[in-house]
Design a protein around this nucleic acid. Structure first.
Lengths: 228, 228
DNA sequence: ACATGCACTATTGTATACAATTATACAGAA
DNA sequence: TTCTGTATAATTGTATACAATAGTGCATGT
């Protein structure tokens, strides 16, 4: 499935208890299962998931760095909560960073990665025409992943992967729309062509808009109401 | 010292063992004490710092999310390392985000925070004239902190704090220069004025340049050679 | 010599036990 | 009543014990 590239910087390994706990809590927060400021107790969550406190604690530490919970020493862990405004902010920030990524990728991309990018778009068209939404999602992920790698910036790559992971939960509910999938493909294609033409400004601008569009689509599909 | 605002989102609490371990390892990585790809063993580090594996493990999890180490499940933790190129990237990314922050702050800043900003600059001039570099550093931190808060974006605030923390280590060696301090003040003042005039474009641009200048200064003072 | 398998070691993953801290409730005095 | 102090409980922080996994080296067979 999403194993080849997903395991790269992923010690979110879904097979360790900590990884499972981490994913579960993050999902529960992003899906609104926990209320804001709700206190998360180590033992309670441990029992709920059938694990001891240790993996729960480790997951907590990670969740805090992601800003999803706030840990007050010797006191407890409290859900930060995520409002529509936050989601919007995250998309705006991501938009800028994806733009920067496209810019850097334009300068640094290798011949091989450029070919992979073209292939990706070719395949995406193929699956879009046939309505294979699962493959489309996979290819969408991979498209951005290629750009991250092509930016040749370890840190930008790292940050954007985090954002991506972060938003996956939200997207799941909404982005399955085939219509958006097709529009997204077109945008990918334009970004790819800008990169191929070595037009960094254009690539950056298009990547900016691409993320904004994704956000707009999500919002139009009623995201605002689903959470809060 | 730096206690009032530092403790806000800081479960880096320096008084817990985990917090100390986290800080120590991060410092050691950023200062080049560990070589790239060096394996960090839980027991070894624990013994070195006189603590058990538990806090070390928790610190590892956090360090991984910051991208400073890479954890391969069941295998080990390896230092990611940080090259001059990475530092440059980080500054470029931070430059964009500080720009965005200044933009949002321009729109959202409260009267009270605006006054605090003006006061900050007034005080900075005062201390710059007298060569109080310690207070200057403190005020510099606070200036940016105010902007983060004024952006009214929980997430941008969170991210920028991370970056700030991250770069503190590097800055320590270099930014003590009083000359740069004075130049920095001027830039702060211009940013403040742009915000006061509600000129978001200008504020964004100035904040961008401010960070770039800070980077240039650091580079000129021989950072490239200090690490690697 | 070389490959293969197995025992052993080293290291991480998880669970549990103990210590420290914080919140709570209740008793007693002003 | 209200405040305060103390005992108690609940919760997190840390250490240690045990389990699982991966790496190492040696012996053995070809």
């Amino acid at each position: 499935m999403s194993s080849e590239y997903g395991s790269k910087s992923d010690s979110n390994d879904k097979y360790s208890l900590r990884g499972r706990v981490f994913k579960k809590i993050r999902e529960d927060i992003l899906s609104g299962h926990y209320r804001e400021s709700e206190e998360l107790k180590e033992v309670a969550i441990g029992e709920e998931l059938g694990v001891s406190r240790t993996p729960v604690r480790e997951a907590f530490r990670q969740l805090e760095l992601e800003g999803l919970i706030r840990i007050i020493p010797n006191k407890g862990a409290y859900v930060t909560g995520i409002r529509p405004k936050d989601v919007k902010d995250i998309y705006m920030i991501r938009s800028m960073l994806e733009g920067l990524c496209a810019r850097w990728a334009t300068v640094n991309i290798s011949k091989k990665k450029m070919e992979e990018l073209e292939e990706n778009i070719y395949l995406s068209d193929f699956h879009a025409a046939r309505g294979h939404s699962e493959q489309l999602t996979e290819l969408d992920n991979r498209f951005h992943e290629i750009l991250y790698e092509a930016s040749e910036s370890k840190f930008l790559e790292h940050i954007l992967r985090d954002f991506h992971q972060y938003l996956v939960q939200v997207r799941m509910k909404n982005l399955a729309s085939l219509e958006r999938g097709r529009a997204s493909n077109k945008e990918h294609k334009m970004i790819m062509e800008a990169i191929k033409e070595k037009d960094a400004d254009k690539a950056e601008r298009l990547a900016n808009e691409h993320i904004i569009n994704a956000y707009q689509n999500m919002k139009n599909n009623g995201f605002e109401e689903t959470i809060e």
